[in-house]
Amino acid sequence: MSLWSEILKNVFKKPVTIEYPKVETPIEKDFRGLQYADLNKCNGCSLCAIECPSKAIEMRKLPEDIKLKHNPRGLYPVINYPSCVFCYRCVTICPVNAYITTNEYRLATETEKLLSDTLSLQTLKSGGA
């Protein structure tokens, strides 16, 4: 009984490491990844910004050309992803279930993934207010 048999087996096996950029990492569909607010639902109540444990959410004013009936305050949450700890407190506390969750975990390279504003504003174009 020693490690020799185990080592010999491993010599003829494929490596267990994943060649990451070429091969995608197997990740769960409901992994707590990047999340952003759907502005078709968000009413600007600011509860997520108050409840965020890492103070990663800032309420911004909507661009002037966008007026939403369901959002009288004209505010929407912008998540600062480098500060975010992905605890999903904002998702579970939201009274109108406005948050869209994804399993996106690759946040290092693209500048669009620093703040959630572009993703949130895109929801208006796709869904229609």
């Binding site: 769960e28 992994f31 707590r32 992905f86 605890c87 999903y88 579970t92």
Partner: peptide
């Protein structure tokens, strides 16, 4: 653990 809680290390499973 990832399947159960949605995170590999930090579970954020309790409330």
């Amino acid at each position: 653990k990832e399947i159960l809680t949605g995170g590999r290390v930090i579970a954020e499973y309790y409330m």
